[in-house]
Amino acid sequence: MLIETRQLAKEYRVGDHLVHALRGVSLGIQAGEFVTIVGPSGSGKSTFMHILGCLDRPTSGQYLMNGRDVSTLPVDELARVRNGMLGFVFQGFNLLARTSAVENVELPLLYTSTGVVEASERRRRALAALEAVGLTDRAEHHPNQLSGGQQQRVAIARALVTQPSVLLADEPTGNLDTATSHEVMQIFQQLRAERGLTIVVITHERDIAAYGSRTIDFRDGQVVSDVHHDQTLAAASPR
């Protein structure tokens, strides 16, 4: 089991109210799965994603990654895990403005566990990641010279550049039109097929969720359904 959560709970305070964002979520995700998470806003899916992404810690419960409890790791160790194990793709792309695509992709290589990767090696790996998303010819373009779909592909390349085992995407198609959304989802599928990446995507669009091999439905901080539909969209089987 690559990812396992045990009775994950998260509470936080908004003014006088205690918000229960997660109420005991226990899940396991195998390596190579393509999980889509759906649910209305406030259902706790983003909180779940943040905990999976080591950006947040659960109030109670355990989060095991490769059998190691990462929920109690110190801040700097969490940063290491994010850098080496996880790749993030956001709804708003979050590319640095006035910075070329290849430099954006290089960014995680400044913070690796072995320190800063040497400049030439950074560039080589960033170009390789851009090639994987089909943007080699846009390497020197700045974000404002790229379409939304291209920007999201740059962001995916950035998530890939440290060769993580898990890709986490929070509404990656939220800012894209339908055609581009499907393009992006196809890239995810392709990456899963070629590299055996584990992919977790949050979405509220059913047709996007259908790209996953498994769909988890969140409501009020709990999992209400967990459906494997590998047979329907298993264009490529995981290694």
Binding site: G53, L55, V75, D76, A79, R80, R82, N83, G84, F88, F90, G92, N94, L96, L107, P108, L110, Y111, T112, R158, T162
Partner: peptide
């Protein structure tokens, strides 16, 4: 701020 958040997400430690 967003850039800082992003850098942290991709592995920057507070000291970085």
């Amino acid at each position: 701020t967003r850039e800082i958040g992003l850098r942290m997400a991709v592995g920057a430690r507070p000291s970085d």
